[in-house]
Design a protein around this nucleic acid. Sequence first.
DNA 1: GTTCTAGAAC
DNA 2: GTTCTAGAAC
Length: 830
Amino acid sequence: MEKEMEVDNFNPNPSKAENGKVLVVIMVGAPGSGKSTFCDLVMGASSRRWARICQDNINKGKAGTKAQCISTAVVALKDKKSVFIDRCNLDREQRAEFVKLGSSEVDVHAVVLDLPAKLCISRFVKRTGHEGNLQGGRAAAVVNRMLQKKELPQLSEGFSRITICHSESEVEDTIITYRRLSAEDALPSGCFGQKTPDAKVQVGIMKFLKKADPPSLGSGSSMTQSSFSSKSVKESQICSEGSKPDAFEGASNEEHKHHLVLESVSDAAALTNSKEDSSSLDISVTLAFPSISTADFQFDHDKASDIILETVEEYSSKLKNARLVLVDLTHKSKILSLVKSKAVQRNINPEKFSTFVGDVTCLYSKGGLRCNVIANAANWRLKPGGGGVNAAIFSAAGPSLEVATKKRANSLAPGKAVVISVPADSPLFIREGVTHVIHVVGPNMNPQRPNCLKNDYDEGCKILREAYSSLFEGFASILKRSELQDHRGQRNENASEQRIKREIVHDEERSKKNKGLEHEVGSGINVLGKEKEKEKQNKSKSASKAWSSWAQALYNIAMNPEKHKSTVIDTATDVVVLNDAYPKAKRHILVLARLNGLDGVGDVCQEHLQLLRTMQQVGIKWTERFLQEDESLIFRLGFHSVPSMRQLHLHVISQDFNSQHLKNKKHWNSFNTEFFRDVVDVIEDVEKFGKPSIQDEGLLSKELRCHRSFDLNGTQSRLSLRKSQIVPVFLSRDEDAFLEKKVGVNKDVKVIMGSFVYNMRLSRWNYDKGSFRYTLSHQWNKLRADKVLKLGNIIQVVLFRLENRINFAILGPKCTFILFGIRVEDYPWY
DNA sequence: GTTCTAGAAC
DNA sequence: GTTCTAGAAC
């Protein structure tokens, strides 16, 4: 169907083309962004002679090389044809050789299809007959991975014109632009990429962004028409600047990503504001916030709207380069219209404050509004769920926000706010460009919810005012620290974690359960300070022997093994071995260090290296013994980051986790998150850095996650599958009901993992506190998944959610396939 | 009503 | 470390 090179000769008089310049149009976009469609649509109605050069099929219909693309392009250009370079071209290096095709007769353009990743993924997956033939999860992985490499083209690379499309309507506009380009026409040079005014962009926000000419659009239906008129094309494309500053040249991908985020805001400011802003920082930052307390907490709207405007007025003078946007979901929003009309009455500067209708979790991807910071109407526990904005934000942000939040605070009182740096892996950051979430808790007037003020509006108004003040103070603190610039260089996980720790907390409330380890309040405690404090605390803990009596049991055994002959199974000079009193798996023993004063892995340093190696060797010796009895077992050897019991002890535990003593989330997570530090890693850390890295207890309350699942990249977790391996799977009640009904227990199923199918037996063997654990015992034969899928016996595909992962169950007359392990946020249709 | 979590006691 | 319980969340 697709030819090596597609040429359309719509122009009956090709000689005309020789008068104008030919073009090399380099398409830039992820798989599924619509590059080929773009080319087809332009070529299908253009009077110019075009060639589409597509690496996917350049080699006699098969994927070819970059060199083949270039030589084909050279031939086409000699023939005075303009060419589309239809490949991803996401980074500068990929584009460089095609840019070189430019000359005095050949202009080089870039067309960037910068559409939401979700859209690309879903198109990519739905595309039939694509060479890669990728499964959903793999497609998501591929697209996401490629997008991470994205570097926006710059004029300095050698382009005479760059057009960036952020939405489908912008793509349509650009198609029209290129369609209308006859052989003798030329398009203006420059970088074009400001948001197109389409129906999704509201008039209010266009004014807010100081866009001179807000489109007079009706409801959605008129959008297509207006955006298809050539007039709107020209008007909508606003040249941002002739050339980009070179500050980002050679910068990392992360920097580029961030550059993108900032760009549109500063461009928007530059549009009409250049005089005022030229002297100040040209970074404008936007905070989007929902109305606090007026939804579920039933706070009076009239009173709330006054408070919003009062605090906005108060802070807008303090927030120099920043904008505030009140967001609500619908045009019908009472609070939004109240605030809107009162803002006009109060003559509030619309450049500083505006209202916006949209979902606060996808302001950029769906509403075209770039917001660096969003506020969350949180609950006092700072937990996901509960519905409304809170549920939406946590869900959109993915689990990492919850972890990051947990690290900062366990609870928040009404009227207070806490600033959280959005982790770099969160879709909120990647997709929406949101760098911070500020949780804020407002007063509650709803008797169905905790801390109800029972209509006490004196107190209520006070707290609501305080809540907005805390929110704006938090926002101000972000601005003050130039945090946004910080992000450019530091967007890796460690840095973001460190930043989280550095950030200001506004009267954050710490739970007391942290054993006094983390009682710092207020702001400005840096990482070092905190670590030192922690160290000190740990030391004082050991020095003052602050361990409870029950926590001393292992210490007592280590000091006097001869007194505990019934429990000790092995003794050496440096170590003692015993069965764990509450084994969490078929085999679970402890290798105890006998050295006095070495309480936990946090106390380990270089001088203990030999001891660690001894502990490891003894552990391995025991696993070998266990394996002789049961070769299906798999072991991990490691330490709990924060042990409950005194005296360094190495867990040697089989990975079946088949035990009546494994009863709760903490148990599971203590062995199946980073909280569990493998002894090999601990030794390596000590060798390299002098001490091991320790993880936070916050990991223990993370959601349950199957330790056998595959990660996004399709790579298997660290342990390989072995014969008859047991795979625990955690299911909610609904999912359990689903499996019970659709599959049944003690049934043989085929489970797809990565690209392989495993025959497994599904059996339910334990239940506790809402979690059902199934085992999938692996039967040691695997088939290529694509082959099995071609058998044609699939009659139904069911999606179900398992913890934070999306799973397929493909139900056929003779078999059931279950594919698990696609992260919710990466799954385009869920 | 059921489920989940934090906190206290041991 | 475990067990128990109250109270909040759902």
